[in-house]
Design a protein around this nucleic acid. Structure first.
Lengths: 200, 200
DNA sequence: TACATATGTGAGAAACTCTAACATCGTCAA
DNA sequence: TTGACGATGTTAGAGTTTCTCACATATGTA
């Protein structure tokens, strides 16, 4: 039965994948700061020394989850961008909603994908994936501005859109929206302000 | 010489304040996730059991720093809002810049003020301060819209402005701006997009 | 088959959070 | 003035955690 996450004897089968999944689940359940390697080991059913055959340290386990999240996020992002015309307000707003939906569905992983530790910036793979995601938005923006190629102007007009949905995502998962007693229709907020940010 | 942070004998003088300051410095130096109570004790020059006379746990120490940051942030925020006419683009953009400047000056504390843990939401004092800060923006927005009182419409028009500078703050401190090879004049970005978000 | 390599285990060192019992200091009522 | 008490510090230590080291077991290849 090929490789599986199920234990089969002395060896695990695919412990790396098993640990990444356990880590993802625990990060989501308890929050990134309450995650422990030992917990992941308990879930995966291995000793606490086992992970160190596959990851340099705890940090690297979390980075693996962040990277996997970035890839998964890209799917939703790309899908949203493709159901509307290139460069349309509909397409751009849909991408924003996909970004926010991911943050709300997996706040733990989302937090991991950004911020949590400065070492993430040094991870070239993670950075590359982030750039690829942003690239999709850039394509739409270039089309909208009637340009063949993505240039600095395009990048500078696209950036505020990212900024906006990024900030909204954090305010939502940190519960600031309800704390301020705001009763918002998120889709409406995204669409209206995307339109404003695109205006000129 | 009244209360001081300096050690004077068996007792410390004002250990609570000393620990908050040590915690703030360490959070800024190493990041919130690398902070340890023991480190703070070493800096303050007390035993590792001492903090528990003043704080329930590590979490509460960090919350104290977040609250103190929120108060300090408010000073800059209020100051920025007062040097320009009530409700003017200048005033609102200046407040945005103050917000971002704080994040860049104290990224560790800024991260603490939002997110890091969900327990923060339950801290009524912290929530109250956050609301007070947001209230300053609401005043300007109400004036701009020619209203006497802050109502739902005002809150809904102000919210995107917060969202925008909040997102920009995080992208800056997480180094995403340089990672995407964007060379931005932040003041320019804030002003241009604040104007767009206010338009209609 | 036999050897090299990959992947798991158990034991333990070092650090950390937090508690419990005890020590010291300041203060206020008698 | 004094002495009891509450506030605030210390020492010792239990329990958890990260990570390393030596050793065990599985897998693949000559």
């Amino acid at each position: 039965m090929a490789k599986s996450t199920k234990r089969d004897g002395y060896h695990h089968g695919d412990l790396r994948a098993g640990l990444v999944e356990a880590t993802r689940a625990l990060v989501e359940e308890k929050g990134p700061d309450r995650f422990s390697v030992s917990d992941a080991c308990r879930v995966a059913g291995v000793s606490t020394a086992a992970p160190y055959r596959h990851f340099r340290d705890k940090e690297e386990m979390l980075r693996a989850v962040a990277l996997e999240g970035m890839l998964r996020n890209r799917d939703g992002f790309a899908a949203a961008s493709e159901i509307h015309p290139l460069g349309s307000l509909d397409a751009i707003a849909a991408m924003g909603m996909a970004y926010i939906a991911f943050a709300q569905a997996e706040p733990g992983v989302f937090r991991l994908m950004f911020g949590l530790t400065r070492e993430h910036d040094k991870d070239p793979e993670l950075m590359e994936q982030g750039r690829a995601n942003y690239g999709i938005l850039l394509q739409h923006m270039a089309a909208r501005m009637g340009k063949e190629e993505v240039d600095d102007d395009v990048a500078k007009r696209a950036f505020p859109l990212w900024t906006f949905v990024h900030g909204l995502s954090f305010l939502l998962i940190d519960d600031k929206v309800s704390a301020m007693e705001l009763d918002l229709d998120i889709a409406q907020v995204v669409r209206a302000n995307t339109r404003r940010l695109l205006a000129d």
